[in-house]
Amino acid sequence: MTRQEPPPLVSVKGLRVSFEDRRVLDGIDLDIRSGEIVTLIGPNGAGKTTLVRAILGLLKPEAGTVLRKPNLTFGYVPQRFAVDPTLPLTVSRLLSLPRKRGRAESEQALSEVGAAYTIDKPIQGLSGGEFQRVMLARALLRRPDLLVLDEPLQGVDVSGQAALFELVGRLRRLHGFGVLLVSHDLHLVMRATDRVICMNHHVCCHGTPHDVTRHPEYLRLFGPEAARSLAVYTHMHDHDHDLRGEVVTLHEDGPTTRRAGGGGS
């Protein structure tokens, strides 16, 4: 018997979406398979979120198809949003929406994303990085086949961004789900990506991060600056910060936490 590739989780073919007279997406083809991280990049207004909404089944395409594997479960983490300050909602309550989750279950999901200490905190008091991790934990509780992260780096500081991507990569290896990542900025995400789809209303180019950053279409969209700025992200910090902002010294034998006496660093 020949080894057959499993069918994709999501298969988009010839997708076209228009709002009133404006064509936002046209001729989009895209497959997402189990266990791979696909990154969607494109400038602001390129239709990335519209494509995500079509994949999630939130809008009807004008033409083309979006095929989902039967019983596909999404773990969707939308763009950073604010919860009204009048709504008293702790992290554990947010995880229990819309389905009740036991405290142990919630705690486990939170520790998987390194945010167990937030469980009783009000949502409105979380930092950008904490909020994204909590939303990730909420998505994990659904046992997703496909994780969809829309601009997960918004409001996350630079050192937290790398940590967040490492986390997504680790969770993918552990759970084997597919990941669809949306970003307007490739160099932040390329280390954690298997495949990049560069789009601006249509698919401009696609391939490995390495190939895409050298593709003339990519350079046309983002300019040669984008390719050069990749170098910035290859330098090493001599220390890092954990989620609470405490300094983590990077030794060869692994990180250790140095407690700063309340002053921060």
Binding site: L58, P78, L87, P98, R142
Partner: peptide, 19 residues
């Protein structure tokens, strides 16, 4: 109650999850 809370927190997310 829970459905309404979820829709209040994020209607798109609620819809994506089948509410």
């Amino acid at each position: 109650w829970r459905s309404l809370l979820m829709v209040t927190v994020h209607p798109e997310l609620a819809a994506a999850e089948g509410a």
